[in-house]
Design a protein around this nucleic acid. Sequence first.
DNA 1: TCAAAAGTGTTCCTTCTACACCCATGT
DNA 2: ACATGGGTGTAGAAGGAACACTTTTGA
Lengths: 241, 241
Amino acid sequence: MNNPSQQNYIHQVSIDCVIFGYHDRQLKVLIPKINFKGDFWALPSGFVYQDEDIDQAAERILRERTGISNIYLEQFHVFGKADRNSMEFLDRLIELNPEKLGEKRHKQQEYDWFTQRFISIGYYALVDIQKVIPQKTGLDESIEWYTLQELPAMIMDHNRIVASALQALRSDLDEKLNAFNLLPETFTMKEVQELYETIFDKPFVRTNFQKMILDLNVLERLEKKFTGAANKAPYLYTFKK
Amino acid sequence: MNNPSQQNYIHQVSIDCVIFGYHDRQLKVLIPKINFKGDFWALPSGFVYQDEDIDQAAERILRERTGISNIYLEQFHVFGKADRNSMEFLDRLIELNPEKLGEKRHKQQEYDWFTQRFISIGYYALVDIQKVIPQKTGLDESIEWYTLQELPAMIMDHNRIVASALQALRSDLDEKLNAFNLLPETFTMKEVQELYETIFDKPFVRTNFQKMILDLNVLERLEKKFTGAANKAPYLYTFKK
DNA sequence: TCAAAAGTGTTCCTTCTACACCCATGT
DNA sequence: ACATGGGTGTAGAAGGAACACTTTTGA
């Protein structure tokens, strides 16, 4: 494992990413579980190289975990409380994993790095869940999609960061029309409606919803999609760029 | 002058504040000019102490320049380009002020601190311009209110930061109803209307504007304001908390 | 020809806009 | 009394919600 304290990172600044995906009428968040005893989940995070834009850093972190580039990213909040550090988490981690981390002395530098106070820049990402092949890093035991209702208890303030990201997503939706980044290249109107109903957690009237979305003038109508079902074939749409 | 490089600050993180005030149908920004040859303007800025929340740091910086506490503050964006440093500005400053800054050797530590790459957290503040008595710090030649149309050319990306703050203010207005922080304790409906017309740069119909604002249910009607003018006395209002 | 789901049009109601009208105030 | 600006009510327009109706598809 690379020792971050020896890397050319900016000190005390971290990036935390909330990666949103959508499937089966559910918003999901991609969360790794780290490969130590004790059931520790943590948002995909990382640090910023000296010669790297913060946006680039976020993109790099996302690429590592999702395998895809050109991800839709939005910086949404900075978490900067004075007592914001992972001391508590790290001490517990060491306590539960003496065989791996017991000889603290040898890793003092690393321990000191990780237990600093960190100012964390929060980003949320919107991805087409079908395109993502979750990638474990060397530190991960697993990396899974969790629905918002079944989020694990994460370390530090990460659960609060997710809540804050969701709030930001909702309030961005109107002006940025970015929800389409959660869908595949092409989609039906019904899929758009289900997505909106999921994000806003309320139903929309089908016929009015169609008009509302088409009036935004951001979708392009393509050919019809024949599913084989015994009903009218819906049009496929794509998001105009 | 205190040498920041010897203070207990977080490295490479700065706070830049855009302080908005309102007077005479104009939005204004409070900007210091630094006390060196060469006409350098820079937003009120500062660093974050190790034991200080970033919000507290912003508040402290604002208190220093405005003399008031409990200021309405909103964190709006992080500026984190890799090439974001003040090397260019500082070299020019030294070049133009050889008598004060010539012996660079003696101040190498300080020079190195200031020319680092900085990640800057942008805050905007909304203040009652009447309550503020602009405070020069030791470094300032002056500190003045500038209208948006007459902003001086500032160092680094500070002009862009102001533009970004204005955009954030406008888009926050609907949901946060924070514009009232720009007004005195009590105000007339006409003053509110002029403020809105200034921020959005468009006229509103008087009678409808009144209804729209009152329907927000955030104002409390107080006694009437007798100005001595030969017309009906308008009500005074205050913002409910 | 029928059931299921998609697409379009129409009515109704709420909200917003423009404006007429009335009210208070000091000269 | 009247000029000036503030406050309220109302008619018309625009936009949104509810729903009826038509179209398409495969069995």
